[in-house]
Simulated scan of single mutants.
Amino acid sequence: MLKGRDPRIDFFRGLALIFIFWDHVPHNPLGQITLRNFGFSDAAEVFVFLAGYACVLAYGKILQGEGYWMASLKILRRAWVLYVVHIFLLAMLMGIVFFANSKVETRDLVQEMGLTHFITNPQQALTDELLLRFKPNLMDPLPLYIVLLLGLPLVLPLLLRKPLAVVAASMTVYLLAPRLGWNLAAIADGVWYFNPVTWQFLFILGGAAAVHASQPRAPDTRPLHRQPVFIAAATYTLLAAVITLSWRWPEIHDAVMPAVISDLLYPISKTDLSPARLLHFLALAYVTAKLLPGRAWTQNWLARQSCRMGRYSLEVFCLGVLLAPLADMLNAQVNDAWPMQIFSALLGLMLMAALAAWLEFNKHLDASRQRQWVAGR
Rank of each mutant, 00 (worst) to 15 (best):
Y53R: 11
T116R: 04
L30G: 02
L355G: 01
V110H: 06
L90W: 08
T244Q: 08
K290T: 15
G348N: 04
Y174C: 08
A51M: 09
R222E: 07
H27W: 14
A100W: 11
V173S: 06
G376W: 10
L302H: 02
R8L: 12
R371S: 15
F40Y: 13
E105T: 11
G67M: 10
E360N: 07
L2Y: 10
F194L: 06
I119T: 09
A210Q: 08
L351K: 08
N195C: 13
M113K: 11
G206C: 08
F194T: 09
A283H: 09
R161H: 07
E129D: 13
P29Q: 05
Q111W: 15
F19I: 03
H24R: 03
L156E: 02
P293N: 00
V197I: 10
G95Y: 07
Y266F: 15
L351S: 09
T271V: 12
W301A: 13
L2V: 01
A303T: 12
A285H: 05
P228C: 15
R78P: 13
W199A: 01
E105F: 08
L89W: 12
V197R: 10
L365K: 09
A91M: 14
V48I: 11
I231C: 13
G14H: 03
M309V: 15
L73I: 14
N300Y: 15
V287T: 15
A209R: 13
I243C: 00
L224P: 06
G52D: 07
F361L: 04
Q123I: 15
D42M: 04
Q200A: 11
Q200F: 09
L76Y: 14
L292E: 05
H24K: 03
M350L: 15
L130P: 10
C55A: 14
Q333L: 06
P143D: 00
C307Q: 13
T244M: 05
D23A: 09
S274D: 14
S306W: 02
G190N: 13
W199M: 04
E45V: 11
F230K: 06
H86W: 12
P163E: 02
L245G: 07
A169D: 14
V167R: 00
D272L: 03
G190L: 13
D10K: 11
A208W: 07
P228Q: 11
Y59D: 03
F201D: 01
I252C: 05
R304C: 15
